[in-house]
Computed example of a mutant assay.
Amino acid sequence: MQIIHSPLDPRLTSYQLLKAKEDPSDTFIADHEKTAVRLLNSNLRVESVFCMPKYLEKHKNLIQSKLKDANKCFIAEKQIFEETIGFSVHQGFMAVGFQRWNSVSETKTPMLLLNSIVDSENIGSILRTAAAFGIQSILFDSKSASPYLRRSVRVSMGSLFQIQLVRVHNLTETIRNLQETGTKILALSLPKDGEILLSKTKSIYGMKKQNNFVLVVGNEADGIEEGILNLSDELVYIPMKNKIDSLNVSHALAVALSHLIGQ
């Protein structure tokens, strides 16, 4: 255990001025007590812990069981803690973990495919919703924000530690490979013009329960790319009233999964 006396301590670079940076890295930060505890209880590797004294006492056994190097647990009083991270907090317990990415070959259904989801808080909400409904894997295209961004991790409440996460660089190839294994590709989308797309468009309320599928969700403003819609086996939409034509992506996802996931 290392006592910290200065917010400029070079051992704390991962925790310093959190709101001012989001550097590309192979690590990530869990900046909320519940999320940090879930990280420590997960099978992800943990680099370090930063906390106030009372949280050390509260989680001492967990920290000792997870950290291989006790010198990677840093303790600071509230003032130093807050000056280090750059903002006031109600909870003084954080941890840094190493990112884990799976390969497509390791994935299991049901799964999601995120097409150009760029808002980190939406990513976090999607992760939490996905975990709640039993999604096993999530594929992220190259245009989607990382699930390991600080806000994504916080909003997810640590849900990402339970799901296989995959970065996909060739969506077309990945979708076709999944279809060859018998996995159905469903696109969550508003009805689109065009005879071919309309012919495979269905209301979510008419879908049967199933598990062997990939549900594609698209960009917050523009939706799913046309090429992905054309490749999908079916387009599913949520009928809405009062001239409402869209929902927040995580809310729409919750509605869709509640009708799709088999028990």
Rank of each mutant, 00 (worst) to 15 (best):
T181H: 06
S232G: 15
I29F: 10
E77K: 13
V217H: 01
K209E: 14
D119Q: 12
L8C: 10
L113I: 03
L165H: 03
M94V: 01
L198W: 04
E82D: 10
I261C: 15
L149C: 07
H32F: 11
D23C: 12
I63Y: 09
L62M: 11
K60V: 11
Q263K: 12
R128W: 01
K21C: 14
Q79F: 12
L215Q: 03
A20L: 08
K143T: 06
S250D: 05
E180L: 06
G158I: 03
L56Q: 07
V89W: 02
F161V: 03
L18G: 05
L231E: 15
D23T: 09
V153N: 04
E83K: 14
I204G: 07
S199M: 06
T172E: 15
Q263W: 04
P7N: 07
S232N: 13
H5G: 12
S152L: 08
I117H: 04
V155R: 05
E220H: 10
V168C: 13
T84A: 15
T183V: 13
Q91D: 14
H169C: 09
S105H: 03
A221P: 00
L8M: 12
L44H: 09
E57D: 15
I4D: 04
L257N: 05
V214E: 02
A132M: 13
H59V: 06
S199E: 07
S203G: 14
L149D: 01
I228W: 03
A131G: 10
K184P: 01
S65A: 15
S159F: 07
T107C: 14
A145M: 08
I126F: 02
D141W: 05
E57I: 08
R150H: 14
P191L: 15
V216W: 02
I3M: 14
E195R: 14
A252Q: 05
